[in-house]
Computed example of a mutant assay.
Amino acid sequence: MTTLTAEQPDLHPSLVRAVNRMSRSGLDPRVSAAVLERGVTTERFPQAWSAEGARWRDLAADADASGKAASAATWYRQAFYCYRLTEFVYTENVPEKLSAYDASVACFEGAVRHARNKPEPVTVTAAGGDFRGYLAMPEGSEDVPVVVHLYGADGNKEEHYWSTALHLLARGMGVLIVDGPGQGWSVRHGGIAARPDIETITSACADYLATVDRADPDRFGVMGSSMGGYYAPRAFLLEERFRACLVNSALFDVVAGLWDFYPPIRPQLAYNIQAPSLEEAGDLYADFTLSGITNVDPSRPSCIYHGGADKLIPVSEAHRTAEAFGPNTEVVIWEGGGHNLGNVGTEARPRMYDWLMDHLTK
């Protein structure tokens, strides 16, 4: 797979990172190469990917109409990633962003329509708002451990069905992924900005899971990556029903560990929190910290994986988060690993998922 570098002169670093991530997640790298070889610039980026998305969507729709469900699913998935890339340029809820987002969700629904572990749309009500999500459960099992997955600043729940949920399902765990405040549908159509007290939403997720017949209420876990590397620890520290916590790229303090350390992400973070300016966004994120939060039950196990070469969040954030967890935590610093261990994911990520399996399954 061809990997772009941050030195691509005509593309903003955030777009380079987005293309690399989608290519690792399931976008055919040959599709990426073909689009970018047309000389795509930051300004032309959304138009190029929207056109490519429409091409794959039309192929999928024709296959669907002809009863070729497997081909349709494959092509809808390619269309999904193309539309995801289309909206990365926009950090305001302009019509172009919302249209691309809606198209990506429609293509996702087409891609998973006949999936073996088809995700079930759910709504979690908390803090005066409705948060859309998906619940996916392994086939046949009863008393299933379920993990609440909290993703990063520029992710969405659909993307993480493939990149995260399927790996947990293969290990006998159910997965609940919700677009929280400042994420996915919540910020695009719900107008719900990011908030530091994510426990108000994740505790409601635990309430919801307690009503799911096949879910084992004694084996709920929580995991998160990147910005979710702040959300998941906070949710775990403050909610004893989460019996284990896994973190990929830990984030103790959003300002020190992300806003200050990796300035290219500031427009995205400002969008998440719906701030009118970067200056105001930086001020608002001052409350996004684990400082002063006490673990309600430090006997519960936790585990942190962090890339030793992470350019978005420094390794020091992993150690600070470990201190907040307490004595029953494991810290793995992967030498040469990048952000979210994306460049070493084939070896590193199965180890993370196995850790959760070992601590949540019987």
Rank of each mutant, 00 (worst) to 15 (best):
S14Q: 14
G140P: 13
S316P: 04
D213S: 12
P217N: 05
E96K: 10
E87P: 04
D283P: 00
V112T: 02
V222N: 09
L360D: 10
M173I: 09
R21Y: 14
E92F: 13
E142V: 11
L166Q: 08
A204H: 09
P13M: 08
R351D: 07
R44K: 15
T123D: 03
M227W: 14
K68A: 09
D216T: 05
A232Q: 13
F325D: 08
L251V: 15
S291R: 14
L168I: 04
A204M: 13
T164L: 05
L237E: 14
P138N: 04
Y161D: 05
S316M: 07
T164E: 10
A136E: 08
A60W: 02
A165Y: 10
D197I: 07
I304N: 02
K362S: 15
A250K: 05
W334V: 13
R320P: 05
V147G: 06
Y231P: 06
M223F: 10
P301N: 03
F242A: 09
G292P: 04
A115M: 02
M22H: 11
V124S: 08
L360T: 13
Q78H: 03
D64E: 12
E279S: 10
S104K: 00
G292W: 03
V122A: 02
H167A: 11
V146N: 03
A136H: 00
A318M: 07
P121R: 01
P327G: 04
T202E: 11
V124N: 04
N295Q: 08
E317F: 00
P121F: 00
E159N: 03
M352H: 04
E317L: 08
P327N: 07
L59W: 08
R234M: 14
S163F: 08
I273C: 14
L135K: 05
R188K: 08
W355A: 07
Y134K: 02
V89L: 13
A322P: 06
T202A: 02
P121K: 03
A210Q: 12
T202P: 10
A63T: 11
Y231L: 15
F252V: 09
A6Q: 10
L11T: 07
P138H: 10
T329V: 15
S203M: 11
M173W: 06
V178P: 00
S71E: 13
L176C: 00
D310P: 01
A111M: 00
Q8D: 15
P196C: 14
P267D: 02
V112W: 00
D58P: 06
A70P: 06
V255M: 04
R219K: 12
L284V: 06
K157G: 01
Y230E: 08
N93R: 15
A111N: 01
C245I: 12
P138L: 02
V122T: 03
G307Q: 04
Y271V: 09
A115S: 03
V187E: 03
P298W: 03
V89S: 12
V212Y: 11
L150H: 11
V94Q: 07
G26R: 06
Q78E: 01
S226K: 12
D130K: 04
T200L: 15
Y76C: 02
G336I: 07
L284T: 09
S186A: 10
N328E: 15
R84T: 11
R241C: 13
A309W: 01
Y208W: 14
G224M: 15
H160R: 01
L85Q: 03
V187N: 05
R116P: 05
A324Q: 13
K97V: 12
R30K: 00
A165Q: 01
F242Q: 12
W185K: 02
M357R: 15
F131G: 03
P276I: 04
H306D: 01
